[in-house]
Design a protein around this nucleic acid. Structure first.
Lengths: 214, 214
DNA sequence: GTCTATATACGGATAGAC
DNA sequence: GTCTATCCGTATATAGAC
């Protein structure tokens, strides 16, 4: 897709260290990462990390915040788009996430891990809160649709869980899935590409299944 | 059978330390756990941990192995049962997992994390391999069913991912879900109880959706 | 800005008293 | 078996040379 090795070219030392930190933190998590790992990965000396970022934790918080933004804010535009239907949003959203996850397969594990470690930090330290409070347009469309089709309207939380589960979990389980099934990363990614088309169909099927149940 | 009266009652020091270690490791993971945390949680001194278990890592491996067994081997009987239909297996399996996960909500994150950290360890050190190699009876039933109904037979890997995703992911995402939706653990668990009935219905709907797609 | 050398703290493990 | 005291490697962070 992208010619991505023009990148490491004219970057400042600060950028290079941050990029190294991103790679190491994202892969190993906060506790298992040593500042020495980051130094080595960046090609610079250990002392530079503190020179630019004061401490391991401050550097981590920067990476963490960026990841949360990638994870959460990147979809705000999609779910609030007035010009797409619900089904279109679903397709775009899932496709967007799967692309992003193929690029950054360790991201979900990282984010969930650190949220797990300290759920309050999200709110306190990183200021994730205000802009996600109002109801996204997507949910409004959903409720309209449920009312119109006299669908038994599952708890929206269930549906949200279903979409997120089907999209993200395979990446979280990837090492185990590959370990057990023997498929490699390339084959795994092909499966994920397939899911871009399949998940929206499945979600629709799940929504319709309420009828049978009633 | 015996009730659970002997909980923290007549257990040996070794047991008590192991139980404390299980709680701490499962919650925080290997790297973020200090042997001092385990000592404190157990009520005993730090030195006792090494007296009984030689090292942090050896203790960890014991906990890890137990968890893997809970996670994997506990379902062997279910998926290989000759006397239940595919749909029954699905219901039993999902219900079994959700019960287990309500009891041990941190377990999936823990297992996936450590597998992620070192996928090879599963095979090398813990000897997880032989008994999971032959095709489970459940998969045979599945293929028969797919052939009989002329269903377009998704890649079984997709269906496995779907079942596992819908069942396990909500627990992995629980802290974030609760943080964003504001529901508490009790309300969350009620949702999970609902999913015992819903997921098998949804899976069936997903399998049927192949027809529409063709 | 970037390095080497070092101070300081922390965590795993052990010695030895009881 | 269980404790206190301590050792020692490792990791973060800083001082100071260049």
């Amino acid at each position: 897709m992208k010619a991505k090795e023009t990148i490491e070219k004219n970057q400042s030392t600060e950028e290079l260290i941050k990029n190294a930190a991103r790679r190491v933190f994202t892969k190993k998590g906060y506790a298992a990462t040593r500042t020495r790992d980051i130094a080595e990965e960046s090609g610079f000396n250990l002392a530079l990390i503190n020179y630019y970022f004061r401490s391991k934790e401050k550097l981590f918080d920067i990476i963490m915040l960026e990841h949360i933004q990638t994870f959460v804010y990147s979809i705000m535009g999609i779910v609030n788009d007035r010009n797409t239907t619900l089904q279109e949003k679903l397709q775009i959203l899932i496709s967007h996430y799967i692309d992003m996850l193929i690029e950054n397969p360790n991201l979900p594990m990282f984010v969930l891990n650190e949220v797990n470690a300290d759920p309050q930090k999200l709110v306190d330290k990183l200021g994730i809160d205000k802009s996600i409070q109002e109801m996204p347009y997507m949910l409004i469309q959903w409720k309209e649709m449920a009312a119109k089709t006299k669908m038994p309207a599952f708890n929206p939380v269930h549906m949200l869980m279903n979409i997120v589960s089907l999209t993200i979990f395979p990446f979280i389980g990837s090492p185990m899935i590959r370990n057990r099934t023997g498929i490699d990363v390339a084959a795994f990614n092909i499966l994920m590409e397939e899911r871009k088309k399949l998940i929206p169909i499945w979600i629709k099927a799940i929504m319709m299944s309420g009828h049978a149940e009633e």
